[in-house]
């Protein structure tokens, strides 16, 4: 159908005030497209299910990261506890000086140690 015919038909139907519901359907029969491209379905399916896979990978990554984080945190806590025990055993207390390795030193001996006098 020629473009001018389409135009006139639309104007005619709008002019007459008749029910225009079917007009576009008729035009579709004449080749005026109101549809997507042929590969539309595949594109949608591809996007939906690829996104889904990506999401699964992302969730798995976050889960394994959390597991790794917990392991690192537990190892750290265990190391700190061991260090505290060894400090207590070596210095006899858990004071600030013990942490600095000064638990058994007197002030004078520290000054001697630092100044060399």
């Amino acid at each position: 159908m020629k473009p001018s015919e389409i135009k006139n038909r639309m104007i005619g139907s709008l002019d007459a005030g008749i029910d225009t519901v079917g007009i576009f359907e008729e035009m579709e029969k004449d080749g005026i497209s109101f549809d997507f491209s042929n590969d539309f379905d595949e594109k949608v399916i591809g996007r939906v299910f690829n996104t889904k896979n990506e999401e699964i990978v992302e969730v798995e990554f976050i889960r394994s990261m959390t597991r790794v984080f917990y392991r690192i945190a537990l190892t750290g806590v265990a190391a700190i506890v061991l260090m505290l025990i060894s400090i207590f055993l070596m210095e006899g207390s858990l004071s600030f000086n013990s942490f600095l390795g000064l638990g058994n030193s007197y002030d004078e001996s520290t000054i001697c140690l630092l100044t060399g006098n």
């Binding site: 159908m1 020629k2 389409i6 035009m27 080749g31 005026i32």
Partner: peptide, 20 residues
């Protein structure tokens, strides 16, 4: 525009409808 129409005439007709 998507150049996916069979003939020039159809393309023009389609263009008129979409443009309107």
């Amino acid at each position: 525009e998507v150049a996916d129409h069979d003939t020039e005439e159809k393309r023009e007709a389609s263009e008129i409808v979409h443009k309107a």
